[in-house]
Deep mutational scan, measured.
Amino acid sequence: EEWMVEKALMVRTGLGARQIESYRQGAWIEGVHFKRVSPSGESTLRGTTWYNYPEINKFIR
């Protein structure tokens, strides 16, 4: 699984929702560690946020 939603990321990493938000707003790079995608497939600020687990795992190492 490369891309996953927040709940799956929480299960895989043990991070809480606030921790994920903090990383997203600070250290993680949009387009690398996470992306927002609307149902139409376009990038957007209001779409579902998807997280790239392999890239996040590399960051944590």
Rank of each mutant, 00 (worst) to 15 (best):
R12I: 11
S43I: 09
Y53F: 12
W50E: 05
R36D: 12
Q25N: 14
E6R: 09
R12S: 06
L15W: 06
S43P: 12
M10P: 01
Q19H: 05
I29A: 05
K58S: 08
S43A: 10
T44S: 13
L9R: 01
E2S: 07
W3V: 00
N52P: 01
E30D: 07
H33Q: 03
Y51I: 01
A27E: 11
L45V: 12
R24Y: 04
S40M: 11
K7G: 10
R18D: 15
I29Y: 04
H33K: 00
E55D: 03
P54I: 14
T48S: 07
T49S: 04
P54D: 11
W50G: 01
R36K: 12
W50C: 13
H33R: 00
Q19W: 04
T49I: 15
K35W: 05
N52T: 01
E21D: 07
F59K: 03
I29E: 07
E21A: 12
K35Y: 06
N52K: 02
L45P: 10
V11E: 15
Q25L: 13
G16A: 11
S43M: 09
W28N: 00
M4T: 03
N52A: 02
R36A: 08
A17L: 09
I20Y: 00
N57I: 15
E6D: 05
N52Q: 02
W50Q: 05
R36F: 15
W28E: 00
N52E: 02
S22Q: 14
Y51G: 00
M10L: 05
V11Y: 10
G26N: 14
P39F: 10
W50T: 04
Y23T: 01
T13E: 02
V32D: 02
G26E: 11
R46A: 15
M10C: 05
I56H: 00
K7N: 09
F34C: 02
G16W: 05
Y53R: 02
E1V: 08
W28T: 00
T48D: 12
N57P: 01
R46K: 13
Y53P: 00
T44L: 10
G16Q: 11
I60M: 13
V5F: 07
V37A: 09
W3I: 01
W28F: 04
L45M: 12
E55K: 05
E1H: 08
S38M: 11
P39T: 11
K58W: 06
I60A: 03
F59I: 05
S22N: 13
E55L: 08
S22L: 14
Q25G: 07
T44K: 11
P54H: 11
T48L: 12
G14D: 04
K58N: 10
W3D: 01
F59A: 05
M10W: 04
I29L: 07
L15R: 00
A17K: 14
T48V: 14
E30S: 04
F34D: 00
Y23V: 02
L45C: 11
T49L: 15
E21R: 11
R12N: 06
P54V: 14
T44E: 14
L15F: 04
V37T: 11
T49M: 14
W50H: 06
A8Y: 08
R36H: 15
V32A: 03
W50N: 03
P54R: 09
N52G: 01
G47K: 08
M4N: 01
F59W: 15
Q19P: 02
K58V: 06
T44D: 14
Y53Q: 03
R36M: 14
L15P: 00
V5W: 06
N52F: 06
Y51A: 00
A8Q: 14
E6S: 06
R18N: 11
V5R: 12
V32L: 09
K35C: 09
E55M: 07
L45A: 13
V5K: 12
V5I: 11
W28D: 00
E30T: 03
E2D: 11
Y53S: 02
Y23N: 04
R18M: 11
R46L: 15
L9H: 00
F59P: 01
A17Q: 11
G41S: 10
T13K: 02
P39I: 13
G41E: 11
F59E: 03
S40D: 14
G14I: 02
G47Q: 11
M4P: 00
G16R: 10
F34V: 03
R18H: 14
E42L: 08
S38W: 12
R36V: 15
E42Q: 10
L45Y: 05
Q19D: 10
L9A: 02
E30A: 05
A27L: 10
M4A: 02
T13M: 06
R61S: 12
Q25P: 02
I56W: 02
N57M: 15
T48G: 08
Y51H: 01
V11T: 09
V11G: 08
F34A: 01
Y23A: 04
K7R: 09
I29M: 06
R36Q: 15
G16S: 15
G41R: 07
I60K: 03
I20N: 01
W28A: 00
Y23Q: 03
E30Y: 08
G16H: 12
S38N: 11
W28L: 02
H33E: 02
M4Q: 03
A27C: 14
Y23I: 03
H33M: 03
E30W: 04
G31R: 03
S40W: 09
R36N: 15
A17V: 10
K35V: 11
Y51D: 00
